[in-house]
Design a protein around this nucleic acid. Structure first.
Lengths: 225, 225
DNA sequence: AAATTAATTTAGGTATGACTAAAATCACTT
DNA sequence: AAGTGATTTTAGTCATACCTAAATTAATTT
């Protein structure tokens, strides 16, 4: 078994790789809330353990075995998030924080029990895919809501779980995964987006729209007004 | 918040105090699986934090605030044990080990949710009392099954959760909390005990009988054969 | 090409919580 | 009262994972 710190580093690397592609020391430092120098020394250690490869000043990349562990941690995290939401009614803006602690103490046996109790789910409350036990993970093809044009419609695939405030904000508009949305208008200069969720109309700030991902996008793209 | 180590020390002290009365360095060392010297230095630290009092070579005693924290940890532990058994079907011989890890990462909010989901329970799967949030704990008046005489009967109050093998062993006889038992005969020289659980008859080893506690003991005590 | 700025690494240090070995104290026996 | 053995404490180390400050390397501007 690896330490909690190591698990956190591997997970962070996996997530940065997914979101930004390149994984720099600074990005890790910021994501983990530790000093860059601390990241460097941990990278050295993880490299010695063959969990990642590292070229000086060039960023890191998970090895097979590093990725395997990262995916196990991610699986724990997302299964727990869903379990807390479903079984204990924890609001979707709080499950992330709780799962951050639980993910490191979940035994394989309990993982299986939660998985079964939830009916072998494939998505967490924010729409992120839950890796299977063997490490298979199915990413949906989606674009940020911010990139949609008036007239287009689609289905919410995923909402970033980084900031609870964002989750509460978009939750108030009913922007949960699997919800159908239609873009009515987009203000220029990265302005707010007006959209329809069911029968209701909402205006969404441009920054928030960066963190809501839409799949199955269709419809004639109109002009930004 | 306190470290996991500190929480474990306080809980261990509480439990040894409950079982043996006096809490020695050695007893703690054995219970926690650390060297006696490590216990001494941790005792010094806890004493500085006013969580316990210590007289050199004389053992320790929890202060009010130390006891309060210990009871919070115990509450977490026992609530989790019951939750795992009830909600996820974890067998009673495994819940202890899982709870040892979970107890340190349970938020107050989740504690409340579990407590409510379980209907504000007062006993864990082994029959140990679950302290209330304010630290009230109701201990049952019980004696070891090993101290019972033939002809006496009573109700299982609690089974020690220290050893999973013990739990599986007595579980096979149906000796769960709230089960009614009657002592049929007791062999001399700390010999095995024959008892009736429902309609079934079982023979229980003397050592195991030390760890099964019976309440509500009645009936004419006969002789040990 | 040199200078500036940003990112990364190195060097040295700290707190936590464990360890071993040796010394001190206590409890008991004779 | 002294000696023996068990218990406890002291002294000194170690690994983990963090930190700050300074040095190095890379990227960008002038």
């Amino acid at each position: 078994m690896y330490t909690e710190s190591i698990e956190n580093y591997l997970k962070a690397i996996y997530e940065i790789q997914r979101e930004k592609g390149k994984v720099s020391t600074n990005a890790l430092s910021e994501k983990l809330g530790v000093a860059p120098a601390s990241v460097t020394s941990m990278i050295k250690k993880l490299s010695e353990k063959k969990l990642l490869t590292h070229k000086r000043y060039q960023g890191v990349k998970l090895t097979q075995s590093g990725q395997k562990i990262a995916l196990e941690v991610v699986r724990h995290h997302r299964l727990i998030e869903l379990y807390l939401a479903e079984a204990l009614g924890v609001p979707w803006d709080q499950v992330h924080e709780e799962a951050e602690k639980w993910e490191h103490v979940l035994s394989e046996d309990l993982e299986d029990r939660m998985d079964a109790a939830l009916g072998h789910p494939t998505r967490d409350p924010h729409g992120s895919p839950i890796p299977s036990r063997d490490g298979t993970i199915i990413e949906l093809d989606s674009i940020p809501l911010a990139d949609m044009r008036p007239g287009q419609h689609g289905v919410v695939a995923e909402v970033s779980d980084r900031d609870p405030n964002l989750l509460r904000y978009v939750g108030k508009m009913g922007l949960y995964p699997k919800t159908r949305v239609k873009v009515v208008s987009v203000e220029p200069f990265s302005g707010p987006i007006t959209l329809k969720v069911g029968d209701a109309s909402h205006v969404l700030g441009a920054e928030a729209a960066q963190y809501v991902f839409i799949t199955d996008v269709k419809g004639n793209p109109g002009e930004v007004i």
